[in-house]
Each structure stands twice: as structure tokens, then as C-alpha cells.
Simulated assay, not measured.
Amino acid sequence: MKVFAIGTITSPPTAEQQQQIMPKEVPHTLQLYLDGKIEQFWFRQDRPGVIFLMSVASVEAAKAEVDRLPLTEGGFMTFELIPAGPLAPLGRLIQGG
């Protein structure tokens, strides 16, 4: 299943907190990518945060993964999780053909 995980920084960490958290956050995120759980990732352009396209078994599995990220655990970031799938109505265009 594909899940868009839209992360928003809700409480920006101080410079000191960033120095403590980011050396853990980046490797954790990269490990999720290497494990195939994050397929693509982007920085948000509208506000501080990230967008992950995740490949996971369920929305609950996506939540479990992003909840373990240091910024989320520290209360600095929250995620909105949106399940996505094929554009099923397109199938009507090819039925009977």
C-alpha cells in the first residue's frame, strides 16, 4: 500500500536541539529509504516539514514508522497520513474494450 506521510514542524527545535536531533533524524530517515519503506521524499515548499511517499502494509504501519523518527518522538513534528491507490475510475474507460 502507498501512503503519503505529510510532516509538519509544529514546534521548531532550537539550534541546540537541532544539533542533538538531526544527527539521529537523517540516518533514521535514510534507513527507512534503504529498507524500501520510504520510496520518495521531499521538503515542503509551503512550510517547514517533509513529504514521504511510503510503501507499507497499512496506514498503521506508516504511523508506527514516522512516530519513531526523532523529530516526531521529541514533539517537534506531526504527520498527516493519506492512503493512496490506483485511480480506479480509469478502469471504466477500458471495460468492454
Rank of each mutant, 00 (worst) to 15 (best):
G85A: 14
L32G: 00
I9S: 09
Q17F: 05
G97R: 14
Q20S: 14
I51Q: 08
L87D: 14
Y33C: 06
Q95L: 10
I51M: 15
L30H: 11
F43L: 15
Q19W: 03
T72M: 03
L87F: 10
E65K: 00
M1W: 08
G85Y: 03
P13R: 04
V26Q: 11
T72G: 07
A62W: 03
T72N: 09
R92H: 05
P12W: 01
P86F: 13
V56L: 06
I6H: 04
T10E: 12
S58P: 00
Q18I: 05
A84M: 10
G96F: 03
F4R: 02
F43E: 14
R44G: 06
P27I: 01
A88P: 00
P12L: 07
L90Q: 04
K2W: 14
F79L: 03
G85L: 04
D67G: 02
T72Y: 01
R44T: 15
G97S: 11
E73Q: 13
P86I: 15
R68V: 03
E39A: 13
G49A: 06
A62R: 00
G85W: 03
P23S: 03
F76P: 00
E60F: 09
T29A: 15
I82S: 10
L53S: 07
E39M: 10
V66F: 09
F76Y: 14
Q40S: 08
L69Q: 13
S55H: 13
E16R: 13
L93F: 01
V66L: 00
P12G: 12
I82W: 05
I82K: 03
P89S: 07
F4C: 05
E16Y: 08
K37Y: 11
P70V: 01
F79Q: 04
T8A: 09
E39W: 04
T10K: 06
P86T: 07
R44W: 05
E39R: 15
P23M: 02
F76H: 15
I82Y: 07
P23N: 09
P12I: 11
R92V: 04
Q17A: 13
L71R: 00
